[in-house]
Design a protein around this nucleic acid. Sequence first.
DNA 1: ATAAGAATGCTAAGAATTTAGCATTTTGAG
DNA 2: CTCAAAATGCTAAATTCTTAGCATTCTTAT
Lengths: 224, 224
Amino acid sequence: MPDLLDFGGAPLMEFASRRLRGKIHAAATAVRYHDGAVLHAHGDDKPGLSIVRSGAVRFGLVDADGTYIATSLLGMGHCFGEATLFAGRKRTHDAVAIGETVIEQIDKARFDRLFDQEPDLARALLNATTRRLYSALDFMDDLRRLPLPVRTAKLVASMANSAKQDGSVACNQADLAFTLGVSRVSVGKTLGDLQNAGILKLGYGKIDIPNRARLHEWIAERSA
Amino acid sequence: MPDLLDFGGAPLMEFASRRLRGKIHAAATAVRYHDGAVLHAHGDDKPGLSIVRSGAVRFGLVDADGTYIATSLLGMGHCFGEATLFAGRKRTHDAVAIGETVIEQIDKARFDRLFDQEPDLARALLNATTRRLYSALDFMDDLRRLPLPVRTAKLVASMANSAKQDGSVACNQADLAFTLGVSRVSVGKTLGDLQNAGILKLGYGKIDIPNRARLHEWIAERSA
DNA sequence: ATAAGAATGCTAAGAATTTAGCATTTTGAG
DNA sequence: CTCAAAATGCTAAATTCTTAGCATTCTTAT
């Protein structure tokens, strides 16, 4: 259960008023999943909006050669499934519960009704998806612009923001490697370099950040 | 003025009814820009929604070392600036007109009024941004999953869809290289290989696709 | 306390990519 | 028609990244 990025954006529920949250709860059916349970598979035709009430969901795809590739991890308050409602897509990824997870599910019919009744829902959804879109664009920009050490540092810094424990990030190098889209060896080497530069300290399944300001400074110096 | 990707999604105006389009036009102020004119710069604080009525807009950023890096190119019917309205961001990129371009501009106050009056606007915006978000996610997925030749072929194929001229795509290798986030040398080599494989033909500032089905087949065989 | 599993550290060969040139071809403007 | 600019083609060295493997360290469940 690493502190891996909730893909940038803030969660939908943060943009909903107390009243709207109540309406959403009322329209939804809560479903409980155990760790590792499959919520849906790539290609399923289940239009509807889902909201993570507790726990987390990991999205990914199984490759032709059988390797699983994770895409993102959404935690409490985040929503998914917008694409089935607004882009007419089937489920784009496999979704798996991480830890004990409760999902609030709103099927298409109910969603459409709620959407028409509650104009604030549209605004909340636009807040959430716009933020996600722009963080994705930023991420892609970095991908082309910045060398691996800087991207790595940025990722660690962004994880530090949402981390439970201050000054420390819970995540193993393999997951980091995947998120950055490079091999574990490269990440290991890069993290080693960053440690030598004194801006972070490697642990077992975690990374300590002795001085957050210093890390941000180091990044700023190298990213335009 | 290459056929470079309109970042995946379909344009906003395609999701608007004739009536809504009328309302949008009525609320907007049209501004004309000549080729190369700057619409806004990165960091400008100009909240509002903009819609491309004719021409196109190229978005990008100037690096610390002065190199300009393009991000996307939006053509007719596409909108931008949602992030200034929904994510509370300043303008995230420099925007430059490509060719004679007319932009319909709706400032924040007018937008909010229109947004409240016209529930369909929310739906249209969600359609557009959701599609863009998911194409961006797909693109990132490909970036990590697929080797360069396949990504290149996919990009060419997607450009072919929106190209004016059938069976041919107008784009130079340098722009392709940037969009793929690799060097011109790599693209040149890769395109050469694809040409040898017989699935496309290189020209000067363009790429011909003798057999679209064959190209898609080639891609499908290699992408999961 | 210990064994099993997880995670990290390390290595070396090979593949892919970049950088920095420069030569050649094509296009379009005058 | 000619010339300059734009685009492509090519090269070679240097760098970065990957793959594949195995040893070591750390954690946790029994």
